[in-house]
Structure formats: C-alpha cells, structure tokens
Simulated assay, not measured.
Amino acid sequence: MDTNHLDKQNFFDLGNLNTLRQDALKSDASPEASKEALKKAAAQFESIFTQMLLKSMRKANEAFEDKDSPFNSSGVKFFEEMHDQQLSVDLSSKGSLGLADLIVQQLSPDAKNFTPSSVLRTVDNFSSDRRANGQSTASKTQPDSVDTTSSTQQKPLFENADDFISTVWEHAKTAAEKIGLNPAVMVAQAALETGWGKHVINKSDGNSSFNLFNIKSDKSWQGDKANKVTLEFEQGTPVKKQASFRAYDSIKDSVNDFVQFLTDNPRYQEALQNTAKPAAFLDSLQKAGYATDPNYADKIKQVLNRTELKTLATTLVRQGVN
C-alpha cells in the first residue's frame, strides 16, 4: 500500500490528526478521495498499534534491567519512548506489519468477493493448531462420526476461582489443623503457585500432577514425577531451568504432603512456630528458602487479602466444610 504521506510525518505533529479529519470530510466528494482517506487512517492505526507493541516489549524487559545503571534512568527512558514513538511512524510508513493493508481491504466500500478468511489466519487453516486444540486433522471429506475419544486433552481441574477455593479448602482444612495453620493461607499459597488452579503441572502422559504447591522432587522422593521449565531467581535475576516436581494421585495427597514436607524439613521449624500468625509464617517460609522469588511472601499476602478469597472462606467456615 502506498504510504508516502507518512514518510515525512512526525509523531508529535498534532496537525496530522487534523489532516486526517479534513481528508475524511472530503471523502464524500469522490470514491478516490474516500479510498485515500481510508489508507491514511489505516496507516495511522498501524502506527498506533506498533507503538503499543514496542511499549509492551519495553515493559516486559523491565524485569531484567539493572536499576542502578545510568542507562535506565528516567531521562533515558523519556527519550527512549520518544524514539519508539517516531519509530512506529517510520515502520508504518513502510508497511512493515501489513496491518494497514488488511484494514483497507476489509473496509473498502468497493471490495469485491472479499471474505475475512482470505487474509486472516483462522484455526481451521492450520493442522498444527487443530492438533493443539485436540481437534481431528483428518480431511474435511472424512465422515463427521470419526471417533475423537482418544484425545489426550484433559479437563481442567477447576472451573473457576470459586471452585478452586472450595475444592482446595475441603482438604486444606484438615491438613492445616495438624500444624495449627489457617487453611486460607494454604489456599492462597496454592493459588499463587498454580494461578488459581489454571496452571497445575501435568505429567508426561498429560494427566495432572495435582502438585498445588510446586514441591520439587529430590532424591528422597520415591513417588511419581513431572518435569517442567520453571523460572528461578539467582541473585535477583530470573533464570529459566528444567526441574522435576512431585506428582500425586489427588488434591488431598498434595495438601497432606505439603504439611509433611514442612514438618520433615528442619529449616522450616521457625515457620511452623509462627503458624498462628500468617504473615510471620509466610515470611519465615520465604526466609527458609521455600521459593527463590524475593517477593514470594508478599505475593501470597496479596492473594490472602483478596476480597473473593475472604468472602468465600468466611462462607465455607460458616457452612462448616470439612
């Protein structure tokens, strides 16, 4: 698409928006003017999208930045943002992403025989996507009665956050009593470790490991195992590592083993002495090295203070779930 009108455009020139408005008003005069105005608006949208993309990339990289480096000062970031904003305009002027072309193709009033599937990627177009979603990759000419019961796709353990809380609470209540801990603390920690049950580690056969606390398997562990790439913090820097985790037969086994794991390890004795004080318990747990994330305890406290957890926990206590 011809985007020469952006070649000399400056991101900070507010007159560009007024130009787009004027072109839109003139578009009623002729089809050619209307199409030209559409091209300019589409290119402007691509520029905005590119800017958002660059901003998100910068944001994602903040976790790896050295806060003490002079290259990460507020002044540097200010000019860096200005650079990215102008870069988005330059990239759009060259049609680098091709997004403007798609917009023009879909919105052109004179488009003939246009169907979105001709330019947009859909799941049905890629057999790899169909396999990832547990769908058959057989030809469309095959009978609809093809047996798909052999799919390895597993049903989620929990339907939503409320289901996660009530299900885990049922087992955590009994296990937590053994060490005098509020079961809500165990539920909050499991929620942080698994994203409210959405990211429980699976075994190699696709079945769930039921490991709600991401306890790793060492030489002393004689049970089943599940491997996964995990993010560890080394001297404050996140590093990806392949690790082996314990696998259980049920949620109940996972919760009980968590209590047993703390009880059997001498380094967690201070934490066990503070079970009556959730905040002190979590601080002692982190101090003992349960997780390498320097903000691990604070993150669990934030989950523990969430309204939905407090409300549902209060309801479960009143109902006497055990």
Rank of each mutant, 00 (worst) to 15 (best):
T263S: 14
V259W: 08
Q286A: 05
N256R: 04
D293A: 13
F258A: 00
D298P: 10
F261D: 11
P278V: 00
D257H: 02
A247E: 03
F281D: 01
A288T: 10
L272N: 08
T292P: 12
D249K: 13
L285F: 01
F261S: 14
Q302S: 15
Q273T: 00
V255S: 06
P278M: 01
Y296D: 02
A276F: 10
A279F: 05
A291F: 06
T275F: 05
F258N: 11
Y248S: 10
A276E: 10
L272T: 07
S250Q: 13
D283W: 01
D257M: 02
K287F: 05
Q286I: 04
Q273S: 13
V303A: 10
P294Q: 05
D253W: 02
L272A: 12
Q286H: 11
A271H: 04
Q269T: 12
Q260T: 15
D249F: 06
T263I: 06
Q302G: 14
L282S: 05
N274C: 09
R246S: 08
T263H: 09
L282Q: 03
T292C: 10
K277E: 13
K299L: 15
P294F: 05
F261M: 13
N256G: 06
A271K: 02
N265L: 14
A279I: 09
L272M: 13
E270R: 06
K277Y: 13
A271F: 05
K287Q: 08
S284R: 02
A247K: 05
P266D: 11
N274T: 01
A297Q: 02
S284V: 00
A279C: 04
T275C: 07
Y248K: 05
S250W: 12
V303E: 15
A288L: 04
S250C: 14
A288K: 05
A276C: 00
K277I: 02
V303L: 15
F281N: 01
K277S: 14
N305E: 15
V259D: 05
Y248Q: 09
G289C: 12
Q273Y: 01
L285Q: 03
A247V: 08
F261P: 06
A280T: 00
K301F: 13
F281Q: 00
V259C: 09
N265W: 14
D264C: 04
R267C: 10
N274Y: 04
S250E: 14
T275M: 04
A288I: 08
Y268M: 10
I300H: 07
Y248N: 09
K277V: 07
Q269E: 12
Y290E: 05
A247F: 13
N295E: 05
K252R: 14
T292I: 08
S284K: 02
D293C: 13
E270I: 00
A291E: 04
Y268D: 06
D264M: 08
K277A: 13
K252H: 12
Q273P: 00
P294V: 07
V259K: 06
Y248H: 08
L282T: 03
D293I: 09
T263C: 07
